[in-house]
Amino acid sequence: TTTITTTNEEDARRIATEWKNKGYTVHVEKRGTTFRIEVR
């Protein structure tokens, strides 16, 4: 599992989409101002 964190919502969406397009399972969680993107 790879975890990526960013405070930028646009980055979070872009990163999540990129990983999904590669065939990975992506889970995005917002904690306060931080977005945690888990890639499996």
Results as ranks from 00 to 15, higher is better:
37 I>G: 00
7 T>I: 08
7 T>G: 09
4 I>Y: 15
12 A>W: 03
31 R>A: 11
20 K>A: 13
36 R>P: 01
9 E>H: 07
34 T>N: 08
23 G>V: 00
12 A>M: 08
14 R>L: 08
30 K>F: 09
8 N>L: 06
31 R>N: 13
33 T>H: 13
24 Y>A: 04
28 V>E: 03
12 A>S: 05
38 E>T: 15
1 T>N: 10
26 V>F: 01
34 T>M: 13
24 Y>N: 02
27 H>V: 13
31 R>L: 14
29 E>M: 09
38 E>A: 07
19 W>V: 02
24 Y>I: 02
35 F>Y: 14
11 D>W: 09
23 G>E: 02
33 T>A: 12
27 H>R: 11
3 T>Q: 07
15 I>E: 03
6 T>D: 02
26 V>P: 02
23 G>Y: 02
20 K>L: 13
23 G>P: 00
19 W>R: 01
23 G>I: 00
32 G>I: 03
8 N>H: 06
31 R>C: 05
25 T>D: 13
21 N>S: 11
3 T>Y: 15
12 A>N: 00
34 T>C: 07
34 T>E: 14
37 I>F: 01
39 V>H: 01
39 V>F: 05
21 N>H: 08
34 T>G: 09
24 Y>D: 01
8 N>E: 06
11 D>I: 09
26 V>K: 00
5 T>N: 07
13 R>L: 14
1 T>F: 14
31 R>M: 14
21 N>C: 06
33 T>S: 13
17 T>D: 13
12 A>Y: 03
34 T>D: 10
39 V>W: 04
3 T>I: 15
13 R>W: 15
25 T>A: 10
19 W>K: 02
26 V>D: 00
1 T>E: 08
22 K>Y: 05
13 R>E: 12
22 K>V: 04
38 E>W: 12
13 R>A: 10
21 N>A: 12
8 N>F: 06
21 N>E: 12
27 H>C: 07
22 K>D: 03
25 T>L: 12
12 A>K: 01
18 E>H: 13
28 V>W: 07
16 A>S: 07
10 E>P: 05
28 V>K: 01
23 G>A: 02
34 T>W: 12
36 R>Y: 15
10 E>W: 09
36 R>K: 10
35 F>E: 01
38 E>D: 08
27 H>Q: 09
2 T>N: 08
5 T>D: 07
31 R>H: 14
35 F>W: 15
19 W>Q: 02
10 E>F: 09
10 E>Q: 10
29 E>I: 13
20 K>V: 12
28 V>Y: 05
10 E>H: 09
36 R>F: 15
39 V>D: 00
39 V>P: 01
15 I>C: 04
22 K>P: 00
31 R>W: 13
28 V>I: 13
18 E>I: 11
31 R>V: 15
2 T>W: 15
21 N>Y: 06
7 T>R: 09
13 R>S: 09
7 T>L: 10
28 V>C: 05
9 E>A: 11
12 A>Q: 02
3 T>W: 14
8 N>T: 09
9 E>W: 14
28 V>S: 03
27 H>K: 11
39 V>M: 05
26 V>H: 00
17 T>Y: 10
14 R>P: 00
23 G>F: 02
36 R>W: 15
28 V>G: 01
12 A>V: 05
34 T>S: 10
15 I>F: 05
16 A>P: 00
7 T>F: 11
34 T>P: 01
36 R>G: 03
35 F>P: 00
38 E>C: 06
14 R>A: 09
33 T>W: 06
32 G>R: 03
29 E>D: 07
1 T>L: 14
37 I>R: 00
29 E>T: 13
40 R>G: 10
1 T>I: 15
33 T>D: 15
13 R>G: 07
25 T>F: 12
25 T>V: 13
38 E>F: 14
24 Y>K: 03
26 V>T: 04
21 N>D: 11
15 I>Q: 04
30 K>E: 06
35 F>M: 03
39 V>T: 03
38 E>I: 15
4 I>C: 03
26 V>E: 00
17 T>A: 14
11 D>Q: 09
1 T>G: 11
10 E>R: 09
3 T>N: 06
25 T>W: 13
25 T>H: 13
12 A>T: 04
6 T>N: 02
2 T>L: 15
7 T>E: 14
18 E>M: 12
14 R>W: 06
30 K>Q: 12
8 N>R: 07
29 E>C: 10
35 F>L: 04
9 E>Q: 07
32 G>S: 04
27 H>W: 12
24 Y>V: 02
23 G>K: 02
29 E>V: 12
3 T>H: 09
30 K>W: 07
13 R>V: 13
31 R>Q: 14
38 E>S: 12
27 H>N: 11
18 E>P: 00
40 R>Y: 14
13 R>M: 14
2 T>S: 08
11 D>N: 06
26 V>Q: 00
38 E>Y: 15
32 G>C: 04
19 W>H: 04
27 H>S: 12
7 T>A: 10
33 T>F: 10
17 T>F: 10
35 F>S: 01
11 D>F: 09
30 K>V: 10
12 A>L: 03
37 I>Y: 00
20 K>Y: 10
2 T>D: 05
15 I>A: 03
13 R>Y: 15
38 E>K: 08
37 I>N: 00
24 Y>R: 02
29 E>K: 08
22 K>F: 05
24 Y>C: 05
11 D>E: 14
39 V>I: 15
33 T>I: 11
35 F>H: 04
37 I>A: 01
28 V>P: 00
8 N>S: 13
1 T>Y: 14
14 R>T: 07
9 E>I: 11
16 A>C: 06
17 T>P: 00
23 G>H: 03
37 I>P: 00
9 E>P: 09
18 E>S: 08
